[in-house]
Amino acid sequence: MKPIYLLVILLTFVLNSAFAANVGFEQFSLEDDTSRPLNVSIWYPTVQPSPKTVVGENPAFVGTEVIKAATLDVRKAPVVLLSHGYRGSWRNLNWLATKLAKRGYVVAAPDHPGTTTFDRSPKQAAQWWQRPRDISRVLSFLLNDTKRKHALDAENISAIGHSLGGWTAMQLAGVEFDRHTMKQQCQLVFNQRTCGSAKELGLTDIQPKEPLASSLKDTRIKRVVSLDLGLARGFSVQSMTRTQTPALILAAGIDIGDLPQAMESGYLAEHLPLETRHYKVYEQATHFSFMQRCKAGAVDLLEKEYKGDGIICKDGFGISREKLHARIFKDILWFLE
């Protein structure tokens, strides 16, 4: 082998290793719609070695190591957009974003106004159609941003959402909310945590400025992943059966008082086209197993702050959340790649 070819191979190996080892991180406010500014977090691969810091950590939850405002050195990186659950935030899937960035992905996550930990405005929460639009807005910004667009592969874009974020991701795939179906299903099987939250989320009655068209599909998004989504029975069956966007449906097998996954993720899997969807249940996972890892003593700490919140840090017997995350990430990576 000629020395020059050997050098190229060695340099490629070094660069790829650097991308896999370091994660850049930035946050900013997207102000293109002044009535709904979005706080956005971005993770990305970088060759910059330091200074490293920890983000997304607090007394209860484990954070991840990143380099803030690092250089963005990739070309044609696949893009992943994340949507957090009801009353969650970017921190909930920080673990997943960091792992994806180490694999060469550029990952972006907005905090959805009205349904985030730091903004529980009832008026914003009731605008159910805004969540998918938030993701589309972030994507449009990234693809047109002179600082970042050179690094992105506009033909390789995915959306991943947990809980209500999974509901959001499926709408981006073309699945449509249907209020009549939602009411019928809640009359058949009522659950306080799902049907009971419908009014707060604007799903029971027509809302001011609600769009006439029910489709919020973003054709730029080529595949979607739902992580133990909720409110699936509010989707129209017709829209599910005709959706062609590939979907990975991951569900938690342990019931924590919501509807059993068979009536949420399973319901979705039942109606999506078999040839474009994949469906898996983690028998030892709870709804919150998809969120960030918890520190020792987190259950007691959360219970002291708000009785009942300790469940956020409980997983199935005999398995750690770290091991569950390893399995979940492996399945997501298989689907994306």
Rank of each mutant, 00 (worst) to 15 (best):
V107Y: 03
G318R: 09
L6W: 14
W90N: 13
E322V: 12
N16H: 11
S239W: 01
N94Y: 01
G310Q: 08
G308W: 13
L82P: 02
F290Y: 11
Q261S: 11
E65D: 14
A60P: 02
A247I: 07
K123A: 14
A97Q: 03
K304M: 07
A97K: 02
P211M: 08
L248N: 04
T219N: 13
T243G: 05
F290T: 06
N39S: 14
K68C: 06
R321H: 09
V224S: 02
G202T: 05
Y267A: 07
D33T: 08
H325Y: 08
F335M: 12
P49K: 01
D309W: 15
L100Y: 04
L143H: 09
F235A: 02
D145I: 10
L30T: 03
T219D: 13
I332P: 04
V80T: 07
V175S: 03
L229V: 03
W167G: 00
G310F: 04
G257N: 06
V55L: 10
T181R: 12
C294V: 11
P211D: 07
I42M: 15
K199S: 13
P260E: 05
R277I: 02
G266N: 08
G174R: 05
D205Y: 11
D300S: 15
K295G: 01
L81F: 00
L143C: 08
E303R: 07
I332L: 05
T194V: 09
F329K: 01
V66W: 05
L336M: 11
E65G: 10
A20V: 09
K217M: 10
M182F: 13
E200S: 13
H271A: 09
T245H: 06
G310A: 10
F28N: 03
G85K: 09
I249V: 15
I42R: 06
R179Q: 12
S41M: 05
H84Q: 07
A109I: 11
I4T: 13
F61A: 07
D73M: 02
E283K: 14
D255S: 12
K295N: 07
R193S: 12
H271R: 14
I135P: 00
T117Y: 11
Q292T: 12
R242C: 00
D178V: 01
S236D: 10
S158M: 05
C195G: 06
W128E: 02
D33L: 09
T168L: 04
E305C: 05
A126M: 10
N16W: 07
P122A: 03
A269C: 08
L212D: 13
E303W: 08
A109G: 10
V225M: 03
E57S: 12
E283N: 12
S35V: 00
R137Y: 08
L6S: 14
C195K: 04
M170D: 02
F235L: 07
D205Q: 15
E270Q: 15
A77I: 03
D309N: 15
Q185C: 04
G174E: 01
S17H: 07
L82C: 04
D153T: 02
K52A: 08
D119K: 10
S226T: 15
D73G: 09
K280I: 00
G56E: 01
E65H: 10
K222M: 10
A198Y: 03
Y86I: 05
K199F: 13
E322M: 09
V54G: 05
E155C: 00
L164R: 12
P45Y: 01
Q48T: 10
F118C: 00
P273M: 01
P132W: 01
L139E: 05
K183S: 12
E200W: 14
T276N: 13
H325D: 06
I160E: 09
